[in-house]
């Protein structure tokens, strides 16, 4: 008999370049969920174009996305843990592609809202938060990303958290948790980080 397994659909949202696709790419990498050759392909592309290696390319499949270093359209991938199955939905952060972000978010039951620790709360951080509330997505986790760029400073993390929390409260979004991460270096992505005392 087929066993019943729960599926959870999670969308990753936030301002352009704050690291949404990198979060997903790194999660797939660290959990060995990638097909053979996927990382090698990204390495080959980086070498050919002379650009640094990007986990985001695992999601940003279009040539235009890789050349411009941004996500244009949403995609979904399957992800499995012992506990349940997940559908992880990548959404673009550029304001021009808001319709694609909404197309992705409309399917979700939970969300990760990614904020660049160095840049702090930006226009699409807020707008995406607002869209989550419109769509009735209540389970929201805020990832404060690129902690490596601010030397894993707890103080700055708490500043970003307080900024975002003030805004989210005003639109009736109450995140489950704020998590400091470094997506690129895999800190607090698949494994709990030893660098962040703040978790």
């Amino acid at each position: 008999m087929l066993k019943f397994r729960e599926t959870l659909k999670i969308v990753v949202v936030g301002h352009v370049d704050h690291g949404k696709s990198t979060v997903i790419g790194r999660l797939l990498y660290d959990t060995k969920s990638l097909p053979e050759g996927a990382i090698e392909k990204v390495k080959r592309i980086s070498k050919e174009t002379g650009k640094p290696f990007e986990y985001a390319y695992l999601l940003d499949a279009f040539e235009e996305e890789q050349k411009q270093g941004i996500t244009i359209d949403t995609t979904q991938i399957q992800f499995h843990t012992k506990k349940r199955d997940y559908v992880i939905i990548d959404a673009p952060g550029h304001v021009e592609f808001l319709k694609n972000m909404i197309s992705g978010a409309a399917n979700a039951e939970a969300a990760l809202l990614v904020i660049d620790a160095n840049e702090g709360v930006r226009e699409q951080s807020k707008r995406h938060g607002y869209i989550l509330s419109l769509l009735g997505i209540k389970k929201v986790y805020v990832l404060v990303n690129k902690m490596d760029l601010i030397d894993y400073s707890e103080e700055k993390f708490l500043d970003v958290k307080s900024d975002m929390d003030t805004f989210l409260k005003s639109i009736n979004v109450f995140p489950q948790k704020y998590i400091p991460v470094s997506a690129f270096y895999g800190e607090n992505i698949a494994l709990r980080s030893k660098k962040n005392a703040v978790v």
Partner: peptide, 12 residues
């Protein structure tokens, strides 16, 4: 299917 290759992963 989305999981076949990149451009299909982005389809509607």
């Amino acid at each position: 299917r989305r999981d076949e290759e990149g451009s299909r992963s982005k389809e509607r």
